[in-house]
Computed example of a mutant assay.
Amino acid sequence: MRKLVLFGEGNFGPALLESALTISNGQADADTFALDGTDVLKFRRNFESVCNTVYNKDSLLLLSDLSTSSVSQEAWLVLEKRDLLNRMLFVSGASVPTVMAALAYKDEVETDEELMKVLGAQTKSSLIFFGS
């Protein structure tokens, strides 16, 4: 089972999840977490709490705004400390279509490699260019 965690600077994580759920008219399950990144220390405590729910064959699917943000750095430190780096897939530059695909496929697709392809295809297909 994959735990889906959305986070970023400020309220990026909660806002991204709310937007995706509003557009898709869906609901998040108990294994989906949207963490506020306004306070880095509070984020770390909340992220550690999520990591406490990772058991046996569980893994993490992390969707973030920037891989170099302060909350992403905190997430990396927690993952390293808890020896979870080999049980996570980290996606930087997450968007609403990425979250919608993650919600739909996180438990349907077996391998991280397949999930990367699905998330990439769903995100890419949502891009629309205007102008010259």
Rank of each mutant, 00 (worst) to 15 (best):
R2P: 10
L4K: 03
L4V: 14
L4N: 02
E9R: 13
E9V: 01
G10S: 05
G10Y: 11
G10M: 03
N11A: 15
G13W: 03
P14W: 08
A15D: 13
L16P: 00
A20I: 11
A20K: 13
S24G: 15
N25L: 13
G26W: 02
Q27D: 11
Q27S: 15
A28Q: 14
A28R: 13
D29P: 14
A30V: 05
T32V: 15
T32I: 09
T32P: 11
L35D: 05
D36V: 03
G37Q: 06
G37M: 06
G37I: 03
T38Y: 06
V40T: 06
V40P: 00
K42E: 14
F47A: 06
E48G: 00
E48Q: 12
E48R: 08
E48M: 06
S49I: 00
S49G: 12
S49N: 15
S49C: 03
V50I: 11
C51Y: 01
V54I: 15
Y55D: 13
N56I: 08
L61E: 05
S64F: 03
S64E: 05
D65G: 04
L66S: 10
S67V: 06
S67A: 11
T68G: 03
S69D: 10
S69P: 05
S70F: 04
S70H: 10
V71T: 13
V71E: 04
Q73D: 07
A75F: 01
A75D: 04
W76D: 09
W76N: 09
W76I: 09
L77S: 14
K81C: 05
L84F: 09
L85S: 09
R87D: 08
M88F: 05
F90M: 04
F90G: 01
V91R: 00
S95C: 10
S95P: 01
T98N: 00
V99I: 03
M100C: 06
M100N: 01
A102E: 07
A102D: 02
A104T: 12
A104N: 10
A104F: 10
K106T: 08
K106F: 05
K106V: 10
E108T: 14
E108S: 14
V109K: 11
V109F: 09
E110C: 04
T111A: 07
T111P: 01
E113M: 09
E113R: 12
E114W: 04
E114R: 13
L115I: 10
M116L: 12
M116E: 14
K117V: 12
L119D: 05
L119V: 07
Q122Y: 08
Q122G: 04
T123P: 01
T123L: 04
K124H: 08
S126N: 09
S126M: 08
L127G: 03
I128A: 07
I128H: 07
F129W: 10
S132E: 12
S132Q: 10
S132A: 09
